[in-house]
Every structure is written in C-alpha cells, then in structure tokens.
Design a protein around this nucleic acid. Structure first.
Length: 304
DNA sequence: CAAGAGGCCAGTCCTAGGAT
DNA sequence: ATCCTAGGACTGGCCTCTTG
C-alpha cells in the first residue's frame, strides 16, 4: 500500500466520481481507475460499489476512509514537526473565524512583527461547526460560539458586549439602553442564515420571544453597518467600533444581557508548530487587558 | 453522449549481478 | 566498495470498448 494510493482513494471517496477525482488529482481517469483497483486488490476487498456509472463507498470503503484520513493527518503533523525541527520555514497557521471584526487589529500587529509567518484563514459556517472532523487542518478557532466537543481546549479572550445599532434620528436614538423585546416589530439587518453570528443573535431574540424580521442578509459586517445607516433596519453588533466610527447610535442591550465571550480554541492532541504557539501566546497577551473573563486554561466540556 | 474500464505502450524506478 | 547494465515491476497516457 502506498501513499499515492491513499491520496487517490481519499479523493475518489470525497467526490464519488472517478473522472472529477482524476481532474482534481491531475492524472488521467484510467490511471486513477487502475490505482484504485490495485489498492482494492492489495486489501482483498472492493472499497466502492459500482452501479453503472455511479461509484459509491461501500462499508469496507467507509471504514478504510476513516483510517486513511487519520493516517494522512498523522503524516501531515509529522511533516510540520520536522519542518519545525529543521527550521525550514517559520510555518503556516490555519485559522477558522466567524468574522474578522475582533481579529483585524491583532493580526495586523502580529504580521508586522512576524512577516515570515503565513496565514490561511476561512470563515466558519454553521455547517462547519457541525462537521469539525472535516476541518482537521485548522490550528485555531477564533469564535464567540463555544465548541461543544470533547478534545478541544479553549482560552476565553474577551467578554464582548452586544449593542443594538440604530441610525441617527431613529425613534430609539436618544435612549441610553434597550430591551430587545422593545424592537420585536422592527426590521432587522444581519448575517445570512448559515452564519454562527446570525444563529447567536437569533437565539438572543428568542430569549424574549421573537424572531427578528430580516429585511437584508449579508456576510459582510461593513455592509450591515451601511444598511443600518441607510435606514433599512436595526442590527445587533459587537462593541469593536465606536459610535463615531460607525456613524450610528449604539444602544447597550440590557435584557436579555447582551454579551458573548470571544475565545481561542484548538484541538487538545494537535501538534502546534512553533509559529502557532507564538501566535497563540501573542493573541492571549493581546487580549489580557480587555474585559476580564477569567484566564484559566480549561477543557471544553459537553455543555449541551 | 458521458463515464468507467481494459489493452497496449512508453517512461521510470528498483534490484540483482557482473566488472573494475 | 563503487559503478554500470539489464531485466522486471509499476505507473500513467492514449485509444477504444462497454454500459447506462
């Protein structure tokens, strides 16, 4: 059995389509077909069910896929470890975030100090939270939504207050704070359905018995601010930016208490490169003077 | 017509054996 | 011990056939 066979197998298993897998692997379809057959011959059992043009993982294939993934993951960790030991490069850090709001400034500072570090960042959706096994390359999750799974470690970074933002001249623009129940009939601007931030905001509204009437949905925080400023509706946002920056009125949400905890989370058994450790320590240090949330390292527990 | 699989061929790599 | 060569095994590409 060879690494090449495993790599080809995992691609076919993922796409369940021989031709598309061959294209992704930059080999011809017959070459891929035979490599898969050779692997099946090695194992002594077929890994796929072939029904006409359809090719699907069978129970042997499903069992083998899990082991092959684990093996490839282990090898990747080994490669990273060797890179660290040999000092070949400073490293690449994979970040998964809900949005960039909290991280824009600290990332700018970190990159100014460590220009040799490469980042790969992607935005988390609700589906990603439900399928964390598919995101094994991630070094750190930087989120306000906790990860309710065994095997993860988190450090709470900052307690973030939530605000309702309204345009100047809005009927609530002169208020000092707001009860969410007061805006149950208002038009809302917010994140798209598959955004974790949207889910959290919806849950907050559900606490006082309403579902926000969304008139505009977007993935971009700046667009939300623009839309509120243009009078399309009100929105729930974090406290990163001042009223002057936003050119909006920020009303602290006092009922239910509007706040969430921004945290850094990582897999307990993941090998962290030197660059990743330096980055984590930098982030923890960056937020240490912010609103305290308790600074003890703790394992994420099954909270649900 | 599209997709998977088989036949054939060429290129590459590995290994055993002989020459120096 | 090192280098060179021949043969076998393996892999991948092209062409073509089969099947839905």
């Amino acid at each position: 059995m060879e690494l090449l066979q495993l790599k080809y197998f995992l691609t076919v298993a993922k796409l369940e389509h021989m031709t598309n897998a061959a294209q992704e692997l930059h080999v011809s379809q017959p070459a891929l077909s035979r490599t898969i057959h050779r692997l099946e011959e090695d194992l002594g059992v077929p890994l796929f069910e072939r029904q006409g043009r359809q090719i699907r993982l069978n129970p042997f294939g499903k069992a083998f896929e899990a082991k092959a993934k684990a093996a490839m993951h282990l090898l990747e960790e080994g490669r990273r470890e060797i890179e660290d030991l040999s000092g070949l490069k400073q490293g690449r850090i994979h970040l998964a975030m809900m949005n960039m709001e909290q991280m824009r400034k600290p990332l700018q500072i970190f990159l100014a100090e460590h220009s040799e570090v490469n980042f790969h960042m992607f935005q988390l959706s609700i589906e990603d939270f439900e399928n964390l096994e598919l995101k094994r390359e991630v070094d750190f999750y930087l989120t306000s939504m906790p990860i309710y799974q065994e095997g993860f470690i988190e450090i709470p970074l900052v307690r973030e207050k939530l605000y309702l933002v309204v345009p100047h001249g809005h009927k609530y623009a002169n208020r000092k704070s707001i009860h969410l129940s007061e805006v149950s009939e208002e038009a809302f601007v917010g994140y798209k359905e598959n955004s974790p931030l949207r889910l959290m905001n919806d849950r907050l509204c559900a606490h006082v018995g309403f579902r926000p009437k969304m008139v505009c949905e977007t993935e971009d925080p700046a667009s939300i601010i623009d839309l509120v400023r243009s009078g399309f509706g009100v929105a729930i946002i974090g406290g990163c930016r001042s009223e002057e920056e936003l050119n909006l009125v920020k009303l602290p949400i006092v009922d239910p208490i509007g706040e969430r905890i921004f945290r850094i989370t990582w897999r307990e058994n993941r090998y962290l490169s030197r660059a990743a450790i330096v980055f984590r320590d930098f982030i923890v240090n960056y937020f240490k003077d912010e609103e305290p949330v308790g600074n003890t390292l703790r394992k994420a527990l099954m909270l649900r």
